[in-house]
Amino acid sequence: MRATALALGTAALVLASGAGHAEVIRIKIANVAYQPAQVTAHVGDTIEWVNADVVAHTATARNGAFDLVMAPNGKNSIVLKTAGAIDYYCKYHPNMTGQISVVRD
């Protein structure tokens, strides 16, 4: 029963992503920093930022690809659609910077 549900869930995830091995990559935000600050991901992967700080932060792409707000103890995510390097920062605290290298499968 459980295994069936899990299999269905996985099938749905694969279908939804349209790719074989879509992953969720978690970036923790703590002590006013993205951890890790640099990640490599594939097109179709999801990046999820989880904020452990007492203040809100953003993940704002310099190329305009995304602009997400993470409330204190909140999280937010995006699905990567195109390959390339994306530099991002926090609009509220521009001393916070990060980079995602998006590669094709």
Partner: peptide, 16 residues
């Protein structure tokens, strides 16, 4: 210490 990092961010934001 965490406050200092946040306020350094505010300073940069204010400069922008």
């Amino acid at each position: 210490t965490t406050g200092l990092k946040i306020f350094q961010g505010h300073q940069q934001h204010a400069e922008h």
